Computed example of a mutant assay.
Amino acid sequence: MAKLYFRYGAMNSGKSTALLQAAYNYEERGQHVLLAKPTIDTKDADRISSRLGVTREVDFLVDATADIRALFAEHRARVQQQARDALVPDADATRADVACLLIDEAQFLTRDQVDDLLRIVVLDGIPVLAYGIRTDFQTQAFPGSRRLMELAHSLEELKTICRCGRKALFNARLVGGRFVFDGDQVAIDQLTAERVTYESMCAECYLAESGGRLG
């Protein structure tokens, strides 16, 4: 039975690396996958990049108003048509279809889009692996992550460590190298003098930097 998976972790926990590895594993077995990410993640444009230097272009981008199930159906049909047009038809009919949909930066999806991920799984019979962070720099859940926590068949935490060696839980924001705890929920890393960066932190270190503030 197909399932909706949410694999989450703090920044730099290897989410994109895990996604690209999952895609490779499927394709190594001759299966087709589709990769997608929200357009709000402007870093690397239409590519998914891991910290290890591996990159890959997505099959489609998802903006805040997009019907993600319709986009998936469109690209699934393309994969099926390409399989039918292949010079050597695939002997296994299941291999002519999409085996899995993989979503990067899934925290940026809307609630309705996450609902449609469940429909893709249940009604269309295709597993969906969504990767993202759970909370923002103010320790508040992203709408997409909150809905994935509510709906996913399987939740898996990808772990990373704080600078002190404890398990990182939160994502602290720095602007120009200084910690900030106010601002818009979304601010993508920027290569400017006042560039936005993030640091994965344990609860103890986060509270030390924020002066005890949460949210």
Rank of each mutant, 00 (worst) to 15 (best):
A93K: 11
H32C: 14
G125K: 12
F142G: 00
F6G: 00
R147A: 08
E28I: 12
Q113L: 09
R56F: 04
A36S: 15
H32Q: 14
I68R: 04
K167Q: 14
E27T: 11
V196I: 15
T65Y: 14
Y198I: 01
R166A: 13
M11H: 03
L61M: 15
C162V: 02
E156Q: 11
V121C: 06
A86F: 06
Q140M: 07
E105H: 07
G9R: 04
Y5W: 13
D189N: 11
L87S: 09
Q113T: 05
S13E: 01
V79R: 03
Y5P: 05
F6R: 01
R47D: 07
G132C: 08
R166M: 07
T94W: 14
N12I: 01
F170A: 03
S200Q: 13
Y8E: 05
G176D: 06
Q190L: 14
Q185T: 15
C202Q: 07
R134T: 09
G165E: 08
H75E: 14
L4W: 02
S50H: 04
A152L: 10
A168M: 12
L214E: 08
L169R: 15
A91H: 10
G212F: 03
V186D: 02
Q190D: 13
R119F: 07
D46M: 05
V121S: 02
N171M: 10
K15S: 05
D184K: 15
L61N: 05
L101Y: 04
E199S: 10
F72Y: 14
A23R: 14
E57G: 01
E199F: 03
S16Y: 03
A106S: 11
R163V: 13
A45T: 11
S210K: 00
T197Q: 07
R47K: 13
F179R: 00
E105T: 06
G9L: 08
T192H: 11
T42A: 09
D136W: 01
K167M: 11
A168N: 08
D116L: 13
G212Q: 09
V33N: 05
H153P: 03
L151G: 08
F60I: 03
Y206N: 01
V58S: 06
E156W: 04
L129C: 06
R56V: 05
E199C: 04
V33S: 05
D90H: 12
M149N: 13
R163Y: 13
S154V: 15
R56H: 05
L71M: 14
A91N: 09
A66N: 12
R29Y: 12
G212W: 04
G125H: 08
T94D: 12
